[in-house]
Design a protein around this nucleic acid. Structure first.
Length: 585
DNA sequence: GCCGTTTTCGGCCCGACTGTTTTCAGTCG
């Protein structure tokens, strides 16, 4: 059982505890904190437990350590098992209904004895929920809507979908002359790979009146992409957009904008330690402002933007992507935040397909599209023969592809270079789909798993470790195989994979397809800290697919990557030299 | 359940919004 699995069980305890009658919110929080403390801990959890080194870790106390030890030793914990047996499944299900939390769930369960979502739905239709004390017609309707919503959509959306919706609304709002500042906030601003809803904050003149606010809200809620209005006031309105994604808009006076934007940009995890820091400096921070308490008097610390807020707290500016409580608070306080990679740092593409396998465009078209985007090289990586479903190339086809590449390179000489690569399948036992003699002739090799997703974890890990140990494997492609909102990845011991990649000097890509973003940014940070180089692979199968790179940039920045960590920010001769020399080790 | 240069007990981030009440609990971010 690895660290993340244990953290997951601790979170489960927190949820189940919250659903227990008369439970303490602080006990619940203690388990949530413990789960987070564990996730960000370095080293092998089994080893740490064996050596008794968990003691002293902030957030872990005698009880939570005991639970962790039980989980490591037995795979579970009697306490958790007890909670699971005593918690009806319907209670957990009801947690997914927006606006419904532990208290309401217990009230419904205890008084109406529902055991399934459809029984709950029926109880609402029979008007029974509205009659419960503390409930009413509106709550009941909201529950009904929630049940329908859950049935209709999974409640998260891929980043690009939310981004597109937000851009459309933003563009419309920007036409209103009363608006001074306008920003997307929330997880979208932080470039999370999936988002639950869209948050937007805009400012108007401090002296503007209710009429201006009402005009803006009327305009917002009457946008064509708005499907339903779920709340409408002068400071906040909530809607559901046509795509099913929920959106909140907040309107504030301009002097308040930085504080509100910061507040609604989150994350919650970032704000908790930030507020603690503020308190230790006799300040409090909320969405209305940053206040300094002196001689018992509270005074606003004027800030014209977010940079001022962090500066007032003795910190350098923390970009939204980093606001996840992954060490950025401490680093910003020491003025040691990394210089993060930017899209303009990219020089080339290192994972793309053509019509030779399952791509939609020819090599020439792909190359010219790269040039048009300002890139100076294209690492072409069509599939290998085992990927028959994707029209993978055999050795003969591969050699013929090289002839075409040579001819194009002659034509493009001096302005662009196509690298001969392959996205070579990792076979079931970890061997590669081409033998070494072929691999040695390629400029670089991306090795990926496309089959046998369901091997036992140990076998799957061993398979990947075998591939990493192959000197001709330069890059591991989409290392976990996850499809966001679709399937979880192969079960792999990612810590062992990262260790091995570091030892062999093998790169791990961030597959920048927005439905993958694999390696996950949380692990990107760990891989970077081990010195692993992390190329951004657009995995483009079309010309538009080349633009996936920008999603990879989001994940890279969330993973604290600098340009120097990413081979395809380097000039082409440096990339080629890097692959050649790492193979000789 | 965790934590502590004012604490080993009494706190725990904090405020808006909603819907229910008639002063507030629950939920959310």
């Amino acid at each position: 059982m690895n660290k993340n699995e244990v953290a997951f069980l601790l979170e489960e305890i927190a949820t189940l505890l919250a659903l227990k009658e008369n439970s303490s919110v602080f006990e619940v929080r203690a388990y949530e904190n413990a789960a987070r403390a564990l996730s960000s801990l370095d080293g092998d959890i089994t080893q740490l437990v064996k050596e008794g080194k968990l003691k002293g870790t902030p957030g872990l106390g005698p009880t939570t350590i005991k639970r962790i030890e039980e989980m490591i030793e037995t795979g579970s914990s009697p306490f958790l098992e007890e909670l699971r047996t005593s918690t009806p499944a319907i209670k957990l299900e009801m947690m997914r209904i927006p606006g419904v939390g532990p208290k309401k769930i217990n009230a419904i369960y205890d008084q109406l004895h529902v055991t399934t979502m459809s029984e709950l739905e029926q109880a609402c239709k029979d008007d029974k929920v509205a009659k419960l004390p503390g409930f009413g017609k509106k709550t009941q309707d909201k529950i009904l809507q929630g049940i329908a919503f859950i049935a209709e959509h999974s409640n998260r959306f891929l980043y690009p979908i939310a981004e597109k919706e937000a851009a459309r609304i933003r563009e419309a709002l920007a036409t209103l002359p009363e608006i001074v500042r306008l920003e997307v906030a929330g997880s979208l601003r932080r470039k999370r790979e999936t988002v639950k809803d869209i948050d937007m904050v805009l400012s108007i003149d401090d002296n503007a009146g209710s009429d201006v606010r009402r005009k803006i809200m009327d305009y917002f809620t009457s946008q064509p992409s708005v499907k339903a209005i779920t709340g409408k006031g002068e400071t906040k309105s909530s809607v559901v957009l046509n795509s099913g994604i929920a959106m909140d808009l907040r309107v504030v006076g301009d002097s308040q904008f930085p504080y509100t934007l910061h507040h609604f940009s989150g994350s919650r995890e970032h704000h908790i330690p930030l507020r603690r820091r503020a308190l230790s400096m006799n300040m409090t921070i909320n969405d209305y402002g940053l206040f300094k308490t002196e001689n018992g008097k509270e005074e606003l610390v004027p800030c014209k933007d977010e940079t001022d807020i962090y500066a007032a707290l003795g910190m350098e500016y923390v970009v939204p992507e980093l606001r996840e409580d992954m060490g950025e608070i401490e680093a910003a306080a020491k003025h040691e935040l990394p210089m993060l990679v930017q899209e303009s740092d990219l020089r080339g593409v290192l994972h793309a397909h053509s019509t030779w396998s399952d791509g939609q465009n020819t090599i020439r078209e792909m190359a010219e599209a790269c040039m048009a985007r300002g890139y100076s090289y294209l690492g072409l990586t069509d599939h290998s023969k085992a990927a028959a479903y994707a029209g993978g190339l055999n050795e003969d086809n591969l050699r013929r592809q090289w002839d075409e590449i040579d001819a194009l390179n002659e034509e493009f000489a001096g302005r662009f270079l196509i690298l001969k690569g392959s996205e070579c399948d990792i076979l079931r036992d970890g061997a590669l789909d081409f033998d070494d003699a072929i691999l040695a002739q390629l400029d670089f090799v991306v090795a990926s798993i496309h089959s046998n997703f369901n091997l036992p974890p140990e076998e799957q890990t061993k398979r990947m470790l075998n591939a990493i140990a192959n000197p001709y494997v330069d890059i591991i492609g989409h290392p976990t195989g996850r499809i966001l909102l679709g399937r979880s990845g192969y079960t792999l011991d990612m810590e062992a994979i990262i260790e091995a990649a570091a030892a062999h000097g093998t790169c791990i890509e961030i597959n920048s397809d927005p439905s993958r973003l694999d390696l996950d940014w949380r692990l990107v940070r760990k891989a970077r800290d081990k010195g692993i180089k992390i190329p951004l692979g657009p995995d483009a199968h079309t010309l538009a697919g080349i633009d996936n790179m920008r999603y990879g940039i989001g994940a890279a920045r969330k993973g604290w990557l600098r340009a120097s960590d990413i081979p395809n920010t380097w000039e082409v001769q440096d990339v080629l030299h890097f692959f050649q020399t790492r193979r000789k080790r």
